[in-house]
């Protein structure tokens, strides 16, 4: 069985970039949504479920997306799996927001 994309311990890699990125409001909100949903008292899902969801992203998405964008997809996936929202409702709302912002799909 091959290693999954996230299992990178021991892989060859270059020098470490010590640069820091400011967290954006997007990052903060995604982080907050995850923490609220995964809080044991809410219990919509666990951190382990979140990891499974991130780790099952295809390699192109895993490496092509930013850190919190990966989280966003994982939270979306779990929210649908747990029946908190339907995929159709989410897509409809995304289209409505895009239209409001000026027609960008």
């Amino acid at each position: 069985m091959g290693k999954h994309v996230h299992d990178m311990g021991g892989d060859p890699a270059g020098p470490i970039d010590h640069g820091e990125h400011a967290r954006t409001l997007f990052d903060q909100r995604v982080d907050a949504m995850l923490r609220l949903l995964a809080h044991p008292q809410k219990g919509y899902f666990t951190v382990d479920a979140m990891r499974r969801s991130i780790e099952s992203l295809d390699p192109q998405a895993y490496h092509g997306l930013g850190y919190y964008e990966r989280w966003m997809r994982a939270v979306r996936q779990l929210a649908i799996e747990r029946g908190l929202v339907s995929q159709a409702a989410l897509e409809q709302r995304m289209a409505a927001i895009a239209a409001q912002r000026g027609g960008k799909a």
């Binding site: 909100r29 949504m33 949903l37 966003m72 929210a79 929202v85 409702a89 989410l90 709302r93 927001i97």
Partner: peptide, 18 residues
């Protein structure tokens, strides 16, 4: 990603999840 965040946040707030 930005659309997804706003859409999911809005829907979960409307449904009273948080």
């Amino acid at each position: 990603s930005l659309l997804m965040e706003q859409a999911l946040r809005e829907l979960l707030i409307e449904q009273g999840v948080f």
